[in-house]
Amino acid sequence: VFDFSGDPWEKQIAKSDNFVFGTQIGDIAFFGYSGAHYWWEVESEVQAFCRFVGDTDTVHHIVLLGHWNGPDLGCKPGMQVPAVYDKMQGMPGCAGKRMISFMGHMHCNKVTNKGSGILDARSFMIGASGMLGACMSEFGVVVVESRDDVAYELDGKGIRVDYVPVTQDPSYGRNPNALRDNHNGIMGCLSGDGNWEKCRRLHAFSWRATTVDDIVGGAPPPLFVPKSVFVPTEPPSVSPIKFIGEAAETVGRALVILLLSAAVVVIIVFGVIRSGIVSVAYTPRAFGQVQPELESLSGSQYGPVLPPA
């Protein structure tokens, strides 16, 4: 049941209960929370989750999910993912479990806490989503997989994190021809025999591995080759003298066309009058205006022209 008791007109956000969740998938327990609330608002939910994890033998790993990587832009002090991760690791129930975390906020996809090495990486950022930020424009997906064949772990369990880059722009938006796109390659591999182990060795990069032999570093996405790429160029520079000359030439051509058009109109009107189709007489009026008087001409093929009433 959601609690909507907060007053938005007073800039009160909804209670933290609306944003906290915990669930178990396989032998992994996931916990998500809101960093826009204070620790005292979330602490009881974290304690309940850790008690569940400690009491559940089928949970071997914990994945913490949050937004902020630092206490800024809406995040309450001490509620960034790295800080909450440290708190949870020392809480009863969670302390005895293997734990990793994911965060966003910064537009980067990278490992943020390598631990003692690639077999012990603990925190990851998956916040690029195509947007340019402190890192290059990038879109990719993370595959988290629990393993039960890890020899160096006492319980034989381990958790693997692979990163699969789909598109990348290493030029930081400066060169559209530098765009890399591997969507078709990835989907072609997965839609084939569906062998993830084969596809990860072709397209994935190990962020956390379970054994040294398990480490993969596939090729980066290939260059994207569109049918056509528009690359804007700087307009050619024009000197003031050349600009004035070209403008004068354009105006001159326009005047010539105007004079020729006027001459053609005069010739046509003169020809009509000379042919006897219509005659026009002008008599002066006040203020220098003229009054046309139309007369009908007998025998005109256009018929009589009615005089003004």
Score class of each variant (00 low, 15 high):
Ser34Lys: 02
Ser34Tyr: 08
Ala36Leu: 11
Ala36Ile: 14
His37Trp: 01
His37Cys: 10
Tyr38Gln: 14
Trp39Ser: 07
Trp40Met: 10
Val42Ser: 13
Glu43Arg: 04
Glu43Ala: 11
Glu45His: 09
Gln47Ile: 05
Gln47Glu: 13
Ala48Met: 04
Ala48Tyr: 00
Phe49Thr: 09
Cys50Glu: 03
Cys50Phe: 00
Cys50Met: 04
Val53His: 01
Val53Asp: 05
Gly54Val: 04
Asp55Ser: 10
Thr56Trp: 03
Thr56Ser: 12
Asp57Lys: 02
Asp57Trp: 01
Asp57Arg: 03
Thr58Trp: 01
Thr58Asn: 02
Thr58Gln: 01
Val59Asn: 00
His60Asn: 09
His61Ile: 01
His61Gln: 04
Ile62Ser: 02
Ile62Arg: 05
Ile62Asn: 05
Ile62Leu: 13
Val63His: 04
Val63Ala: 03
Leu64Gln: 10
Leu64Lys: 01
Leu64Asn: 09
Leu64Arg: 04
Leu65Pro: 08
Gly66Ser: 08
Gly66Gln: 04
Gly66Lys: 05
His67Phe: 04
His67Arg: 05
His67Asp: 14
Trp68Lys: 09
Asn69Thr: 14
Asn69Gly: 14
Pro71Lys: 12
Asp72Val: 15
Leu73Val: 15
Gly74Ser: 11
Cys75Asn: 14
Lys76Phe: 04
Lys76His: 12
Gly78Ile: 02
Met79Leu: 06
Met79Phe: 08
Met79Asn: 14
Gln80Val: 04
Gln80Phe: 03
Val81Arg: 12
Val81Glu: 13
Val81Gly: 09
Pro82Thr: 14
Ala83Gln: 15
Ala83Pro: 10
Ala83Leu: 13
Val84Thr: 12
Val84Cys: 04
Tyr85Trp: 10
Tyr85Pro: 13
Tyr85Arg: 12
Asp86Pro: 12
Asp86Tyr: 06
Lys87Trp: 05
Lys87Ala: 11
Met88Cys: 07
Gln89His: 09
Met91Glu: 15
Met91Cys: 07
Gly93Lys: 02
Ala95Val: 10
Ala95Gly: 11
Gly96Thr: 08
Lys97Trp: 02
Lys97Gly: 03
Lys97Cys: 02
